[in-house]
Design a protein around this nucleic acid. Structure first.
Lengths: 112, 112
DNA sequence: ATATATACATAATAACATTATATATAATTT
DNA sequence: AAATTATATATAATGTTATTATGTATATAT
């Protein structure tokens, strides 16, 4: 449940969810838990902070939902810049996987 | 060259090198650069800070080299506890790889 | 003689995730 | 009806770790 390895990738995780469809904090939080079978639980505060950073960097933009009933929801939409960022981050992830696999490679005899 | 994804894994990288043979800061630094073909350059200060933390947690122990000529070297040796820690970190890495692959999986069409 | 490589160390800074806390509404349970 | 839980957003305080900057010292190469 330690999310430290994912440091720096919270934004990419969120962006990849937003690429499928616009969404909002609470739902994204639940989706990550569901998608990872409860192995990764990114905290609400982490997500809202990431939203803030990403909107400042124009990776996402928000709008408020117009539903009268139910609690208000702040929806986010990925921007073109966000798509590029996501693609770059995926490349970075592939590269980093190779690097760390290489550096830890021979420590594996007897995996999980 | 961004080492942020490796945050939390600097210690495992060092321990894996120490598992092969006792070594010291400068040499480990060079070895990581060499092993990753210059893709990962963990800074000296990062390594020495990691040494400090790991020695406090009894993952490694040091001794000074007795060579009269040449600059003095502080060698480090992995402990049993360090071996266990390394093994755990490798499991964690395998687990985290699956999680992030899962979460970024469909953003891949068109890898590096 | 000077520059570069080797070698260690610490303080200051930056970045990001978590915890704690606050607010508010809707739905469910007792 | 009251209390609890789920839904929903937000910020301040804290903790961890990596980097940059800086300092010291010796050995080697130019």
């Amino acid at each position: 449940m330690n999310a430290d390895i994912l440091r720096g990738f919270t934004e990419a995780i969120i962006l990849n969810i937003l690429k499928e469809s616009d969404s909002y904090g609470y739902k994204i939080s639940r989706k990550i838990i569901e998608k990872t079978d409860n192995l990764l639980n990114i905290k609400d505060a982490t997500i809202y902070l990431a939203f803030k950073r990403m909107e400042q960097n124009d990776l996402i933009r928000h709008y408020w939902s117009d539903n009268e009933e139910g609690a208000r929801r702040k929806y986010y939409k990925i921007t073109d810049k966000g798509c590029v960022y996501l693609k770059d981050k995926c490349s970075e992830w592939e590269r980093n996987k190779k690097i760390l696999d290489n550096l830890l490679g021979d420590a594996y005899e007897g995996k999980i």
